[in-house]
Protein backbone atom coordinates (compact mmCIF):
# COMPACT_ATOMS: atom_id res chain seq x y z
CA UNK A 1 0.00 0.00 0.00
CA UNK A 2 1.20 3.47 -0.90
CA UNK A 3 0.30 5.98 1.77
CA UNK A 4 0.25 9.57 0.53
CA UNK A 5 -1.04 11.27 3.68
CA UNK A 6 -0.69 10.17 7.26
CA UNK A 7 -1.93 11.70 10.49
CA UNK A 8 -0.31 10.40 13.68
CA UNK A 9 -2.07 11.20 16.94
CA UNK A 10 -2.84 14.69 15.61
CA UNK A 11 -4.46 17.14 18.03
CA UNK A 12 -5.57 20.73 17.72
CA UNK A 13 -6.39 22.50 20.96
CA UNK A 14 -7.80 26.02 21.24
CA UNK A 15 -7.84 27.97 24.49
CA UNK A 16 -11.47 27.06 25.10
CA UNK A 17 -11.73 23.58 23.60
CA UNK A 18 -10.02 20.75 21.74
CA UNK A 19 -11.17 20.67 18.10
CA UNK A 20 -9.21 17.53 17.16
CA UNK A 21 -7.99 14.93 19.65
CA UNK A 22 -5.49 12.20 18.80
CA UNK A 23 -6.56 11.49 15.24
CA UNK A 24 -4.55 8.85 13.40
CA UNK A 25 -5.32 8.18 9.78
CA UNK A 26 -3.60 6.93 6.63
CA UNK A 27 -4.91 7.91 3.19
CA UNK A 28 -3.78 5.77 0.26
CA UNK A 29 -2.62 7.31 -3.00
CA UNK A 30 -5.45 7.57 -5.51
CA UNK A 31 -8.34 6.83 -3.17
CA UNK A 32 -11.43 8.87 -2.46
CA UNK A 33 -11.54 9.31 1.30
CA UNK A 34 -14.36 11.03 3.17
CA UNK A 35 -14.19 12.48 6.66
CA UNK A 36 -17.77 12.27 7.88
CA UNK A 37 -19.18 13.81 11.01
CA UNK A 38 -21.71 16.23 12.44
CA UNK A 39 -20.87 19.93 12.68
CA UNK A 40 -18.37 20.58 15.44
CA UNK A 41 -16.88 17.09 15.16
CA UNK A 42 -13.49 18.48 14.11
CA UNK A 43 -13.54 17.30 10.50
CA UNK A 44 -13.04 20.76 8.98
CA UNK A 45 -10.24 21.53 11.45
CA UNK A 46 -8.59 18.26 10.41
CA UNK A 47 -8.82 19.35 6.77
CA UNK A 48 -7.34 22.77 7.59
CA UNK A 49 -4.47 21.10 9.42
CA UNK A 50 -3.67 19.06 6.31
CA UNK A 51 -3.92 22.16 4.08
CA UNK A 52 -1.57 24.06 6.41
CA UNK A 53 -4.00 26.81 7.42
CA UNK A 54 -3.66 25.63 11.02
CA UNK A 55 -0.76 24.02 12.85
CA UNK A 56 -1.29 20.95 15.02
CA UNK A 57 -0.88 21.29 18.80
CA UNK A 58 0.33 17.71 18.97
CA UNK A 59 1.14 14.74 16.75
CA UNK A 60 2.52 14.65 13.22
CA UNK A 61 1.19 15.19 9.71
CA UNK A 62 3.16 13.35 7.01
CA UNK A 63 2.90 13.99 3.30
CA UNK A 64 4.69 11.40 1.17
CA UNK A 65 6.38 10.28 4.38
CA UNK A 66 7.72 13.75 5.19
CA UNK A 67 6.68 15.66 8.29
CA UNK A 68 4.89 18.87 7.22
CA UNK A 69 3.48 20.07 10.58
CA UNK A 70 4.69 23.63 10.20
CA UNK A 71 5.17 23.86 6.43
CA UNK A 72 3.13 26.86 5.16
CA UNK A 73 0.29 26.11 2.69
CA UNK A 74 2.22 27.61 -0.24
CA UNK A 75 4.97 25.04 0.19
CA UNK A 76 2.70 21.98 0.38
CA UNK A 77 1.58 20.13 -2.71
CA UNK A 78 -1.95 19.99 -1.34
CA UNK A 79 -4.87 21.96 -2.78
CA UNK A 80 -8.23 22.88 -1.33
CA UNK A 81 -11.63 23.29 -2.94
CA UNK A 82 -13.27 25.67 -0.49
CA UNK A 83 -16.87 25.36 0.60
CA UNK A 84 -17.65 28.78 -0.95
CA UNK A 85 -15.09 28.03 -3.74
CA UNK A 86 -13.09 31.21 -2.87
CA UNK A 87 -12.58 32.15 -6.53
CA UNK A 88 -10.72 35.42 -7.07
CA UNK A 89 -13.50 37.82 -8.11
CA UNK A 90 -11.13 40.13 -10.00
CA UNK A 91 -9.88 37.34 -12.26
CA UNK A 92 -11.58 35.49 -15.11
CA UNK A 93 -12.08 31.72 -14.95
CA UNK A 94 -8.89 31.26 -16.98
CA UNK A 95 -6.88 33.64 -14.74
CA UNK A 96 -8.13 31.79 -11.68
CA UNK A 97 -6.93 28.51 -13.17
CA UNK A 98 -3.58 30.03 -14.21
CA UNK A 99 -2.94 31.52 -10.76
CA UNK A 100 -1.27 28.46 -9.23
CA UNK A 101 0.60 27.56 -12.43
CA UNK A 102 2.17 31.03 -12.54
CA UNK A 103 3.24 30.75 -8.91
CA UNK A 104 5.04 27.52 -9.76
CA UNK A 105 6.60 28.86 -12.92
CA UNK A 106 5.13 26.13 -15.11
CA UNK A 107 6.51 26.42 -18.67
CA UNK A 108 3.53 25.52 -20.84
CA UNK A 109 0.65 27.15 -19.02
CA UNK A 110 -1.68 27.20 -22.04
CA UNK A 111 -1.50 23.46 -22.62
CA UNK A 112 -2.13 22.68 -18.95
CA UNK A 113 -5.06 25.11 -18.77
CA UNK A 114 -6.66 23.80 -21.98
CA UNK A 115 -6.39 20.22 -20.76
CA UNK A 116 -8.02 20.92 -17.40
CA UNK A 117 -10.73 23.10 -18.95
CA UNK A 118 -11.65 20.15 -21.16
CA UNK A 119 -11.54 17.82 -18.17
CA UNK A 120 -14.06 19.84 -16.14
CA UNK A 121 -16.08 20.87 -19.23
CA UNK A 122 -15.66 24.61 -18.94
CA UNK A 123 -14.85 25.28 -22.58
CA UNK A 124 -16.33 28.59 -23.71
CA UNK A 125 -16.50 30.03 -20.19
CA UNK A 126 -12.79 30.84 -19.80
CA UNK A 127 -13.15 34.61 -20.04
CA UNK A 128 -16.14 34.82 -17.70
CA UNK A 129 -15.70 36.33 -14.25
CA UNK A 130 -16.89 34.34 -11.20
CA UNK A 131 -19.85 36.73 -10.70
CA UNK A 132 -21.29 35.69 -14.06
CA UNK A 133 -20.83 31.92 -13.59
CA UNK A 134 -23.47 29.57 -12.16
CA UNK A 135 -22.86 27.71 -8.89
CA UNK A 136 -21.94 24.52 -10.74
CA UNK A 137 -19.57 26.36 -13.07
CA UNK A 138 -17.86 28.10 -10.14
CA UNK A 139 -17.31 24.75 -8.52
CA UNK A 140 -15.74 23.43 -11.72
CA UNK A 141 -13.40 26.44 -11.87
CA UNK A 142 -12.43 25.76 -8.25
CA UNK A 143 -11.78 22.10 -9.09
CA UNK A 144 -9.83 22.98 -12.25
CA UNK A 145 -7.74 25.59 -10.44
CA UNK A 146 -6.62 22.92 -7.94
CA UNK A 147 -6.45 19.85 -10.20
CA UNK A 148 -4.25 21.62 -12.76
CA UNK A 149 -1.49 21.66 -10.11
CA UNK A 150 -1.61 17.84 -9.80
CA UNK A 151 -1.72 17.98 -5.98
CA UNK A 152 -0.68 14.99 -3.87
CA UNK A 153 -4.02 15.36 -2.10
CA UNK A 154 -7.05 17.38 -3.15
CA UNK A 155 -9.00 18.58 -0.13
CA UNK A 156 -12.72 19.21 -0.60
CA UNK A 157 -14.63 21.07 2.11
CA UNK A 158 -18.34 20.18 1.87
CA UNK A 159 -18.09 20.38 -1.93
CA UNK A 160 -21.80 19.85 -2.61
CA UNK A 161 -23.35 21.90 0.18
CA UNK A 162 -23.38 25.19 -1.77
CA UNK A 163 -25.20 23.59 -4.71
CA UNK A 164 -28.89 23.43 -5.52
CA UNK A 165 -30.29 20.17 -4.04
CA UNK A 166 -31.44 19.05 -7.53
CA UNK A 167 -27.89 19.40 -8.81
CA UNK A 168 -26.20 17.59 -5.94
CA UNK A 169 -26.77 14.00 -7.05
CA UNK A 170 -25.58 14.76 -10.57
CA UNK A 171 -22.45 16.59 -9.37
CA UNK A 172 -21.79 13.76 -6.91
CA UNK A 173 -21.49 11.39 -9.86
CA UNK A 174 -19.33 13.83 -11.81
CA UNK A 175 -17.00 14.32 -8.85
CA UNK A 176 -16.56 10.58 -8.50
CA UNK A 177 -15.90 10.22 -12.25
CA UNK A 178 -13.40 13.09 -12.14
CA UNK A 179 -11.51 11.42 -9.30
CA UNK A 180 -11.42 8.10 -11.18
CA UNK A 181 -10.14 9.79 -14.34
CA UNK A 182 -7.46 11.96 -12.72
CA UNK A 183 -6.38 9.38 -10.10
CA UNK A 184 -5.72 12.28 -7.73
CA UNK A 185 -6.22 11.45 -4.05
CA UNK A 186 -9.42 13.16 -2.84
CA UNK A 187 -9.98 13.91 0.84
CA UNK A 188 -13.51 15.19 1.31
CA UNK A 189 -15.19 16.58 4.40
CA UNK A 190 -18.95 16.16 4.66
CA UNK A 191 -21.75 15.93 7.20
CA UNK A 192 -24.02 14.11 4.72
CA UNK A 193 -23.82 10.35 5.27
CA UNK A 194 -25.53 9.50 1.96
CA UNK A 195 -22.96 11.62 0.12
CA UNK A 196 -20.08 9.92 1.93
CA UNK A 197 -21.48 6.41 1.45
CA UNK A 198 -22.18 6.85 -2.25
CA UNK A 199 -19.00 8.62 -3.34
CA UNK A 200 -16.04 7.42 -1.30
CA UNK A 201 -13.77 4.38 -1.28
CA UNK A 202 -13.29 4.73 2.46
CA UNK A 203 -14.85 6.81 5.20
CA UNK A 204 -13.54 8.02 8.53
CA UNK A 205 -16.29 8.97 10.96
CA UNK A 206 -15.48 11.77 13.37
CA UNK A 207 -17.30 12.59 16.58
CA UNK A 208 -16.31 15.18 19.20
CA UNK A 209 -12.81 15.62 17.79
CA UNK A 210 -12.04 11.91 17.61
CA UNK A 211 -11.91 9.52 14.68
CA UNK A 212 -14.29 6.77 15.80
CA UNK A 213 -14.01 4.34 12.91
CA UNK A 214 -12.46 4.03 9.47
CA UNK A 215 -13.56 1.65 6.78
CA UNK A 216 -15.28 1.01 3.46
CA UNK A 217 -18.85 2.40 3.24
CA UNK A 218 -20.49 -1.04 3.55
CA UNK A 219 -18.31 -2.03 6.49
CA UNK A 220 -19.30 1.08 8.37
CA UNK A 221 -22.97 0.73 7.54
CA UNK A 222 -23.22 -2.96 8.35
CA UNK A 223 -20.60 -3.22 11.08
CA UNK A 224 -20.48 0.08 12.97
CA UNK A 225 -18.26 0.02 16.03
CA UNK A 226 -20.31 2.45 18.10
CA UNK A 227 -23.92 3.33 18.63
CA UNK A 228 -23.10 6.87 17.40
CA UNK A 229 -21.79 5.59 14.06
CA UNK A 230 -24.70 3.17 13.64
CA UNK A 231 -27.14 6.05 14.09
CA UNK A 232 -25.17 8.60 12.09
CA UNK A 233 -24.90 6.43 8.97
CA UNK A 234 -28.60 5.59 8.86
CA UNK A 235 -31.72 4.91 10.91
CA UNK A 236 -31.55 2.05 13.44
CA UNK A 237 -34.27 0.26 15.43
CA UNK A 238 -33.02 -0.50 18.91
CA UNK A 239 -34.99 -3.59 19.93
CA UNK A 240 -34.12 -5.24 23.26
CA UNK A 241 -30.62 -3.71 23.09
CA UNK A 242 -30.01 -4.98 19.58
CA UNK A 243 -29.71 -2.70 16.54
CA UNK A 244 -31.52 -3.58 13.32
CA UNK A 245 -31.77 -1.36 10.21
CA UNK A 246 -35.38 -0.63 9.05
CA UNK A 247 -34.79 -2.38 5.71
CA UNK A 248 -33.75 -5.56 7.58
CA UNK A 249 -36.75 -5.37 9.89
CA UNK A 250 -39.70 -7.52 8.73
CA UNK A 251 -43.26 -7.21 9.93
CA UNK A 252 -46.24 -9.61 9.98
CA UNK A 253 -49.53 -10.06 11.79
CA UNK A 254 -48.78 -13.63 12.80
CA UNK A 255 -45.70 -14.95 14.60
CA UNK A 256 -42.78 -15.60 12.22
CA UNK A 257 -41.76 -19.12 11.31
CA UNK A 258 -38.21 -20.46 11.35
CA UNK A 259 -35.09 -19.55 13.25
CA UNK A 260 -35.42 -15.75 13.49
CA UNK A 261 -35.39 -13.13 16.27
CA UNK A 262 -38.68 -11.37 16.88
CA UNK A 263 -40.51 -8.91 19.11
CA UNK A 264 -44.20 -8.08 19.55
CA UNK A 265 -45.33 -4.53 18.82
CA UNK A 266 -48.36 -2.33 18.12
CA UNK A 267 -48.65 -0.37 14.88
CA UNK A 268 -48.65 3.40 15.37
CA UNK A 269 -48.66 4.57 11.77
CA UNK A 270 -47.98 3.51 8.21
CA UNK A 271 -46.52 5.96 5.71
CA UNK A 272 -46.49 5.39 1.97
CA UNK A 273 -43.30 6.70 0.35
CA UNK A 274 -43.81 5.55 -3.24
CA UNK A 275 -41.22 2.81 -3.46
CA UNK A 276 -42.01 1.47 0.04
CA UNK A 277 -44.03 1.80 3.23
CA UNK A 278 -42.60 2.84 6.55
CA UNK A 279 -44.55 1.09 9.29
CA UNK A 280 -43.89 2.58 12.71
CA UNK A 281 -44.65 0.34 15.70
CA UNK A 282 -44.46 0.71 19.47
CA UNK A 283 -42.49 -2.05 21.20
CA UNK A 284 -43.45 -3.60 24.53
CA UNK A 285 -40.36 -1.87 25.97
CA UNK A 286 -41.85 1.50 24.96
CA UNK A 287 -39.43 2.26 22.09
CA UNK A 288 -40.39 2.85 18.48
CA UNK A 289 -39.24 0.73 15.55
CA UNK A 290 -39.65 1.31 11.81
CA UNK A 291 -40.04 -1.52 9.32
CA UNK A 292 -39.39 -0.65 5.69
CA UNK A 293 -41.71 -2.79 3.60
CA UNK A 294 -41.33 -2.65 -0.17
CA UNK A 295 -44.01 -5.20 -1.17
CA UNK A 296 -46.45 -5.51 1.71
CA UNK A 297 -48.27 -8.86 2.00
CA UNK A 298 -50.90 -7.22 4.17
CA UNK A 299 -52.11 -3.81 5.22
CA UNK A 300 -51.03 -2.48 8.60
CA UNK A 301 -53.35 -0.20 10.52
CA UNK A 302 -52.93 1.80 13.67
CA UNK A 303 -53.53 -0.42 16.71
CA UNK A 304 -52.78 -3.72 14.91
CA UNK A 305 -50.78 -6.18 17.00
CA UNK A 306 -47.80 -7.29 14.92
CA UNK A 307 -44.53 -9.18 15.11
CA UNK A 308 -41.25 -7.55 14.10
CA UNK A 309 -38.60 -10.07 13.10
CA UNK A 310 -35.14 -10.17 11.57
CA UNK A 311 -32.26 -12.50 10.74
CA UNK A 312 -29.61 -12.74 13.42
CA UNK A 313 -27.01 -11.94 10.74
CA UNK A 314 -28.62 -8.53 10.18
CA UNK A 315 -28.08 -7.43 13.76
CA UNK A 316 -25.58 -4.60 14.21
CA UNK A 317 -22.85 -5.68 16.62
CA UNK A 318 -21.14 -2.89 18.48
CA UNK A 319 -17.83 -4.19 19.84
CA UNK A 320 -16.81 -0.81 21.18
CA UNK A 321 -19.94 -0.43 23.29
CA UNK A 322 -20.00 -3.91 24.81
Amino acid sequence: MDTVLELREVSKRYPAHAAVSGVSLAVERGEFFALLGPSGSGKTTALRLVAGFEQPSGGDILLNGLRVNHLPPYHRNVCTVFQNYALFPHMSARENIEFGLRRRGVADIDAAVSAVIGLVQLAGKESRYPASLSGGERQRVALARSLVLRPDVLLLDEPLSALDPNLRKQVRGELKALQRRTVVTFLMVTHDQEEALSISDRIGVMNAGRLEQTGAPQDLYLRPRTRFIAGFLGPVNWIDGVGVRPEATRISHGPPAGDVRSAAATVESSTFLGNCFHVESRLASGGLAVAEVSRPNARFHRGDTVYLWWDASDELRLPADS
Partner: peptide, 23 residues
Amino acid sequence: IDPSLLEAAADLGAAPMTTLVRV
Protein backbone atom coordinates in the same frame (compact mmCIF):
# COMPACT_ATOMS: atom_id res chain seq x y z
CA ILE B 1 -12.23 40.91 1.41
CA ASP B 2 -13.28 37.32 2.12
CA PRO B 3 -10.48 35.79 4.28
CA SER B 4 -10.85 32.49 2.38
CA LEU B 5 -9.47 34.27 -0.73
CA LEU B 6 -6.19 34.82 1.10
CA GLU B 7 -6.14 31.17 2.15
CA ALA B 8 -6.91 30.15 -1.43
CA ALA B 9 -3.97 32.22 -2.70
CA ALA B 10 -1.60 30.59 -0.18
CA ASP B 11 -3.10 27.20 -1.02
CA LEU B 12 -2.29 27.72 -4.73
CA GLY B 13 1.35 28.49 -3.91
CA ALA B 14 1.38 32.26 -3.40
CA ALA B 15 3.80 33.49 -0.71
CA PRO B 16 2.43 36.33 1.48
CA MET B 17 4.02 39.08 -0.65
CA THR B 18 2.49 37.63 -3.84
CA THR B 19 -0.91 37.41 -2.16
CA LEU B 20 -0.59 41.07 -1.22
CA VAL B 21 0.26 42.19 -4.76
CA ARG B 22 -2.04 39.82 -6.71
CA VAL B 23 -5.07 39.59 -4.44
